[in-house]
Amino acid sequence: MTAQLAEPATRAWQADPYAVALRTGQGPLFLRRRDGWLLPLEVERWCAEPDAADDTVLARCAGPVLDVGCGPGRLVTALARLGHTALGVDVTPEAVARTVRAGGSALCRSVFDPLPRQGRWGTVLLIDGNIGIGGDPAALLRRTAELTAPGGSLLVEVATADVDERVEVHVEDGDGDRGASFWWARLGARALCAEARGAGWTPYDTWRTAGRHFVHLTR
């Protein structure tokens, strides 16, 4: 698989029911695999203020920060309040609009599109499972390495389980309304670190808090 797999996902995230959930700030919302397995999406948390686990991410940010798949922008706006130059990118217009309304800066683009400050971001974020974007973690890790300054950091939220999978999914709400199918990935810390080394990243630290698991990689 290549980074080109991001394009169907781009269309899927722009469509209902994901955009509707962001507009209202409420779920339920799920990723459903073809075999019926469901992954709940935490829309209410994404639309709230940063929580204690998010604070541990914010504390590790240095320099200008790029939040990939920023969603409704809770981290971008918090970083701006902390004095960082911060930019969110998201393929969903409603996510970008919500970020801007909250006082953050965001662009409606894929991470694989041309972006400002390429090669000069001090920290890049892949939080809330966004290592899954495009279903090709190796391509995403290479792309984030291109975006990050030498010596910069990539902060990734990984699955709490020791998992390494690329799956076809769709977004579905509690009423059974669904979006288009697209590829997604789920990685635990061990799988992420293995992929990262081949993409120019060095594992630096891992931590768990409030039931969430994170990895700090350096360029």
Score class of each variant (00 low, 15 high):
residue 161 A to P: 01
residue 117 R to I: 01
residue 110 S to Y: 10
residue 100 V to H: 12
residue 15 A to W: 07
residue 162 D to N: 08
residue 136 D to I: 01
residue 212 R to M: 10
residue 218 T to I: 15
residue 3 A to V: 05
residue 180 A to E: 09
residue 173 D to F: 08
residue 57 V to I: 15
residue 39 L to F: 11
residue 2 T to E: 13
residue 154 L to H: 12
residue 30 F to C: 01
residue 42 E to R: 10
residue 210 A to L: 12
residue 57 V to G: 05
residue 72 P to K: 02
residue 123 T to M: 04
residue 153 S to G: 10
residue 84 H to E: 02
residue 60 R to P: 02
residue 71 G to M: 06
residue 117 R to F: 03
residue 12 A to N: 13
residue 108 C to H: 00
residue 78 A to H: 09
residue 97 A to H: 14
residue 70 C to K: 11
residue 46 W to G: 01
residue 8 P to D: 14
residue 70 C to E: 07
residue 128 D to F: 11
residue 91 V to S: 12
residue 160 T to L: 14
residue 214 F to D: 11
residue 51 D to Y: 00
residue 63 G to F: 12
residue 176 G to D: 02
residue 172 E to K: 00
residue 196 A to M: 06
residue 72 P to C: 06
residue 190 R to M: 01
residue 105 S to P: 02
residue 13 W to T: 09
residue 64 P to K: 12
residue 77 T to F: 07
residue 111 V to R: 03
residue 126 L to T: 02
residue 116 P to M: 00
residue 164 D to N: 14
residue 96 V to K: 12
residue 108 C to D: 04
residue 158 V to C: 13
residue 35 D to A: 08
residue 134 G to D: 07
residue 133 I to Q: 02
residue 17 P to G: 10
residue 166 R to N: 04
residue 141 L to C: 11
residue 191 A to G: 03
residue 174 G to F: 00
residue 86 A to E: 06
residue 16 D to C: 03
residue 101 R to K: 12
residue 111 V to W: 09
residue 199 A to W: 01
residue 217 L to H: 09
residue 67 D to C: 10
